[in-house]
Write a protein that binds this DNA or RNA. Sequence first.
RNA 1: GGUUCUGUAGCUCAGUUGGUAGAGCACGGCACUGAAAAUGCCGGUGUCGCCAGUUCAAUUCUGGCCGGAACCA
Length: 296
Amino acid sequence: MQKVLVISGPTATGKSDLARYLAKELNGEIISGDSIQVYRGLDIGSAKETEAEQAEVPHHLIDILDPQQRYSVKDFQLQSRRLIAEISARGRLPIIAGGTGLYIRACLYDYVFEEEEGEDDPCPALSNQELYQRLQELDPRALEKIHPNNRKRLLRAYNVCQKSGMPFSANDKAKGEPLYDALIIGLTMEREELYARIDRRVEAMAAAGLREEIAGLLQQGVDFSCQSMQGIGYKEYKEYFSGEKSEEECLQLIKSHTHHFVKRQYTWFRHQLNVSWHEPQEREKIRQEVETWLKN
RNA sequence: GGUUCUGUAGCUCAGUUGGUAGAGCACGGCACUGAAAAUGCCGGUGUCGCCAGUUCAAUUCUGGCCGGAACCA
């Protein structure tokens, strides 16, 4: 099996720095595993590495889309797998670095995404309850995994049933088998310390011109309904630009949303990925673990 | 110094006509196959300022003490 090194963990733990270091030390190339950094122009709020940092070692799947474009886990799966093959063929080590847990899992494991046409219908006329009732007939098995309040999942299941004529749960063919020999390094630290780091980073983003970055995007015709603008650090500014909130309030919300996000990331990593956890300062120990894994 | 108000969760506060308490925020946990930085779900936070009195029973009533606020001097 091809070897893939993964550097993951919650936001603001120093994944990019570690990945860059290991890429240089171990002849690697970095594949970003991040759902927001794919977008050009979303630099400050997505904590993208600087151009100089990116130039130190090959990076992939950063700045590949305009902010108006859509992107999905299926796109990532296809592109990341192709890149893994290419990088390996060059005799180099593919390193996925990022915190989008679903993307990483969909790349590494045998997730299957069928061909689909068109976008899902948001079914504005159907209430959650009605969707739930229809799914009870169409695909009761899918409902075992979907809470009745979770409109997005209900819609997704309903749309797949409509489009394909097959139950949504039939899509769930994966056996949970890994496709690669992957070592997943997770960066972690005390929660309190991480939250303090995040709060400082948000202030630093503001000082670096987050507001101006968003204003520029809006001027280019990007608006807050775009998928790219659903990211933390961007969506909160909607109410600033509509005059409903002060910038201070927006920054507070960004901090709070990032804290919540960290909790969800931990839940995913703990249960969906087999992570070897380390503190960011344990670089040499991590490097040794990676080198040992590379030899086997 | 006097008068009035006030002290309940980490914070802001609600409440108990006496049977040891609840909201929001914060915090913790969980789910997850096409928006995932998304979308949902669950959870408890506690010497009810301290000491005494009345009472079967006090966070609730009474008294004292301590802390805070406002006004008066």
